[in-house]
């Protein structure tokens, strides 16, 4: 088992508000790591720190170090664009570009120059859509607008868009919270299928989902990492009482 990303003593602030307090955690390849905890516990902040999406938030500040393959992502010679290409992200609400399905998936490879010529690009688009389990549904309507798809399809399109850049890590911020149960099931299935190739971190409010899809679980509470370990351990034998209260539905 190899560590893909590791955070050491990370604290994050929005202005004066401390959102994360001295968090250290590893994200491993070929594993799904679930970040759970009540609203405002800092799990989404941690996720956004991992590919520096918080750079654009005014007043946001971070301390500690985060490394990708042993390389500090805040280092001067680290290009944030390259970082985000290597660490892809899927958001809470499906947010396809208002372009065609094809262009949605092709956008990343195009701006990073990952495909030479139309033929290669076509291949990348097809592979990505296949991996996202969307190919059969959209192969005849690649020129339709991405926004015309159903919610679940849109989210899988967004996953395909992230896969097309050939990332090493995929971050998912409550990817199913806006979807119905059937679409959720398909995404969960997809996460399972993707696990073999990528390191995946997923933020979720849904305990069953965390238990179903992840191998590792980290429980956050009030900006602190309370407990981190194998999912089976955390759910069957939580050490902290707050973890136990949370996963048994006492609050959250």
């Amino acid at each position: 088992m190899t560590v893909k990303m590791s955070a050491r003593h990370v604290s994050a602030y929005y202005g004066d508000l401390r959102a994360l307090d001295d968090v250290s955690i590893d994200i491993d390849t070929q594993h799904v790591t679930a970040l759970i905890g009540p609203s405002g516990c800092g799990k989404s902040t941690l996720l956004r720190l991992l590919n520096r999406m918080n750079d654009a938030v005014p007043g946001a500040r971070v301390e500690g170090s985060i490394e990708l393959d042993g390389q500090d992502i805040h280092a001067r010679d680290m290009d944030v664009v390259e970082l985000r290409a290597r660490v892809g992200m899927v958001f809470q609400k499906p947010n396809p570009f208002p372009k065609s399905i094809y262009d949605n998936v092709a956008y990343g490879p195009r701006i990073h120059g990952l495909a030479r010529g139309r033929g290669e690009l076509d291949a990348v688009v097809e592979t990505s859509l296949r991996r996202a389990g969307l190919w059969d549904e959209v192969k005849d309507r690649l020129d339709d607008r991405g926004t015309a798809l159903s919610g679940g399809q849109q989210q899988r399109l967004c996953i395909a868009r992230a896969l097309a850049v050939d990332p090493e890590v995929i971050l998912m911020d409550e990817p199913c919270s806006a979807l119905d149960p059937i679409a959720t099931a398909r995404i969960e299935e997809l996460i399972g299928a993707l696990r073999g190739r990528y390191a995946i971190a997923i933020v979720t409010h849904n305990m069953q989902q965390a238990a179903r899809v992840s191998q590792r679980t980290a429980f956050f509470y009030a900006g602190r990492l309370v407990e981190y370990g194998d999912t089976s351990d955390i759910f069957t034998n939580p050490r902290a009482t707050s973890t136990k209260d949370y996963i048994t539905g006492r609050y959250g």
């Binding site: 290009d79 664009v81 390259e82 290597r86 990073h112 120059g113």
Partner: peptide, 10 residues
Amino acid sequence: GGSGKFGSLP
């Protein structure tokens, strides 16, 4: 061939 993966495009 550009500037490698994720480098600058031609």
